[in-house]
Each structure stands twice: as C-alpha cells, then as structure tokens.
C-alpha cells in the first residue's frame, strides 16, 4: 500500500468496534486499516460477519468506533463531509407509501440539494434507469430490483464526494450489474472514491481496481487484483522427458502434485529453483519450467478460509 496521500482519498486507520461487554464481547472490526483511493473502485470482500457492514457504518458515522479513525483527505471525516457522501445501507428500504420522486427529493433536500435541482437530477437518473414512468408510483409497487435502483439514485444524487455502497450488486441480473458498474465508473472518473462491499468475488475481480479482503474483522489482503495475485505463493510447473517422481527428495522444494513427467512445486528460494533445474537437466530434457500465478479465487480461499 502506497503512503502518498491523494486529494479525496478515503482511509480508515486502526479501526476497532467491539459489540457487547465482558465475556460476550465480539470484536466485529479488529484493527482495520486500508485506503479507498480517489478515482478508484475499491471492492470490499469478505464472508458474512467479516465486518464489512460495521466498517462502512463507521465510515458513515452511524456506528461509533470503539477506537481508530476514519479519514478523508488525510483528516478525520466530519459531519459536513458525510453530508456530501452517497451511502447505500445494507438493508434496502425506503418509505413504502411515498412516491418515488417525492422521497428522493426529500432525501436530496436533507443532503442540502435545493428541491428544483434535486428533482431535475432525479428525473435524469430515473430516465436513464428506465424508471421515468414510475416517478409518481409508490415505492411499494416497484419490484425489488427497481427499488434497488431507486436506492442507488438516493446515493448518487448531488455529485457525492465519496460513495459507500453496501452490496450494491446483490439481486441484480448480469445486464443490470454492468449498467450499475458503468454508473459507478462515471463517479470514479470524476475523481471520487467508491467503496462497495460484495461477497461475489468474481464480480469484484472483474469490476474493481482495488480490493480489500476482510476476514473475522481483520484485513487479510489489500491491493490491486494483479498485485494480490503476484503476492500469492508462486508455484512452478516443471515438465520433463522422464518421470518426475524424484523431485520429492529435493531440498527446498515442496512437491504439490506429481503426475508422470509433470510436477507442480513450491520453491523455498531462488537457489532451490536453480538446484532443481540443474538436477533436471542432468537427468534429461526439460520441456517446461514456468511460474504459475494463482487466480484471485484461489487467493481468496487461501486468505479468507
């Protein structure tokens, strides 16, 4: 993780949240530090109870941290900053018996957007998401997917300075996921940090430029997907002309899998690699000797298991 600050970066530092007291106390968020850089989509990944939602709620100021800090531009986030953040909470809900447009205008006004400007912007968003003709409908008459679109509009309006979205893609079909991703990229293009949580790793890997993996309240991996993959334990594939069973006896070499002339090995250091290759050439031809990069899914299993 680079230490250079960039204008607009969102950061959490040594964040801790303990629920309950005494023996029943649970450290839901346990010394979490990471950065969601400005202009980047940062994916926040982890299983149920990993602490994603609690961390996001602390960033939005609706949950008090036990200790630690939430920062923007390198200084503590204030109520004024948060007023300009777009937030989508974990559970989906709006006023069921109020018209879509009316309640979006209400939420916009609470965030300081004058009613006419809010109305114009909301109508634009509704148009774009194919909901223009539902503006006057009560929210309860909308399908769940459409309710989610209305909620995302609530977070996106007023050109927010940061977006904190809890599971924004859950329940969307693939086409809707792409539409939503395009929408989010428009905001990163403005130089805004976007932090979203998900438990769908493939989606996060495909969409985001940065990844924070959380497990039991702790950050277990943090970086660009390619960077993380490079950091994972690199294995080597060795293909020989004869049987490769002998690699099992080599010092500094762990044979993960041996199948006839093909061996998958983990090397303790570069010297072990040289020694292995040397021995192999003494015994015959070496058809292949190459590093194997693990997929993100494998890393995720490894770190979040």
């Amino acid at each position: 993780m680079s230490t250079a600050h960039q204008e607009g970066d969102l950061e959490v530092r040594s964040l801790v949240r303990v629920f309950g007291t005494g023996d029943g106390a649970v450290r839901a968020v346990d010394d979490v530090s990471f950065r969601a850089p400005a202009g980047r989509l940062t994916g926040f990944v982890g299983g149920n109870g990993a602490g994603k939602t609690s961390t996001m709620r602390m960033i939005m100021g609706v949950l008090a941290p036990t200790s630690g800090e939430t920062l923007v531009d390198g200084r503590p986030i204030t109520a004024t900053d948060r007023r300009a953040f777009g937030y989508m909470p974990e559970e989906r809900g709006l006023y069921p018996k109020q018209a879509v447009l009316d309640q979006l205008v209400y939420l916009g006004r609470l965030r300081g957007i004058p009613a006419p400007a809010a109305r114009a912007e909301i109508l634009g968003h509704l148009e774009r998401l194919g909901l223009a003709d539902r503006a006057k409908d009560h929210v309860e008459k909308l399908s769940l997917g459409n309710q989610q679109r209305v909620q995302i509009i609530a977070a996106l309006m007023g050109a927010p300075r940061a977006l904190i979205l809890d599971e924004p893609f859950s329940g969307l079909d693939p086409a809707a996921v792409d539409g939503m991703a395009d929408l989010l990229r428009e905001h990163t293009a403005r130089g805004v940090p976007v932090l979203f949580s998900s438990h769908q790793l493939d989606l996060v890997e495909r969409l985001c430029e940065r990844l924070v993996i959380l497990r039991r309240g702790q950050v277990v991996a943090d970086g660009a997907p390619a960077e993380l993959a490079a950091r994972g334990t690199v294995r080597h594939r060795l293909v020989l002309s004869g049987d490769a069973g002998w690699v099992r006896g080599m010092p500094g070499v762990r044979a993960v899998d041996v199948d006839g002339p093909v061996a998958l090995v983990e090397l303790s250091d570069d010297g072990a690699g040289r020694a292995l290759l040397h021995s192999a050439l003494e015994r015959g031809d070496v058809r292949e000797f190459s590093p194997v990069r693990p997929s993100l899914t494998e890393i995720y299993r490894e770190v979040a298991a």
Binding site: R57, R83, R92, G93, L94, Y95, L110, G112, A155
Partner: peptide, 17 residues
C-alpha cells in the same frame, strides 16, 4: 420505526443531525 427498520435512518443520519 419505519425509518429504523428500513435503515433509511442511516441515510438520513449521515446527512443531517
């Protein structure tokens, strides 16, 4: 409770005191 149950209050609380 409607606002609390739907977490709307979290959106509101992050916008205004």
């Amino acid at each position: 409770v409607e606002e609390k149950q739907s977490r709307l209050v979290e959106i509101i609380a992050s916008a205004v005191p």
